[in-house]
Amino acid sequence: MSTRPIATTRSATGIPTGKLAVWWVVGSEIVIFGGLLASYVMHRLGHPEWAEYASHTNPWFGGINTFVLLTSSLSAVLAHHAAEHGDGKKAAKWLVGTCFGGLIFICVKAVEWTIEIQHGYTITANGFWQFYYTAAGLHAMHVIAGCVIMLIIANDARKGLELHRVELIGIYWHFVDIVWIFLFPLLYIAK
């Protein structure tokens, strides 16, 4: 392992380098999801027939998943809180808890999609469902990626290393949560 360059430790803006980078990551993600969701909204408003397609989604699955993600966000922020107080072990525990939330989210999604696909609502069924699977799928990939990174960070945090990273993954996770907060009404509620 190479050591960190001096450049990384400087902070002319007053924001630590890693955190600054995460904010830029969040910014670039906003435009990725923004572009996709803007495209979806345009189509949804321009196609009255999509209302009927959309009525087949199950808001209970969406609601449960929103609950799960909101709770995992709480767990992520508690991990940050613990890390701030130098308690790496506790931070790691909360992070693993957050990951567990991500796992439940993916499992619920798997059950939900299986039922939908069995009913014939596949990605090629029509315009609504292709956006539904693309947007939710892109989001689910972010959840999975976040879980993997979180486990790595939790492993370090457990040994008391790189505790500042707990906050960074937290910011990313909250962003993923916010994306879902918007996906939920767009895909499940507005009918």
């Binding site: 906003i30 435009v31 909250h174 916010i178």
Partner: peptide, 26 residues
């Protein structure tokens, strides 16, 4: 979530402006 969990309320202001700019572009 953004204000309390991501701590935008205590982050430097320009981070909020930055994210708002990206949203405005959308």
């Amino acid at each position: 979530v953004a204000a309390n969990f991501m701590h935008l309320n205590i982050e430097k202001r320009y981070i909020s402006y930055l994210l708002a700019t990206f949203l405005t572009l959308m």
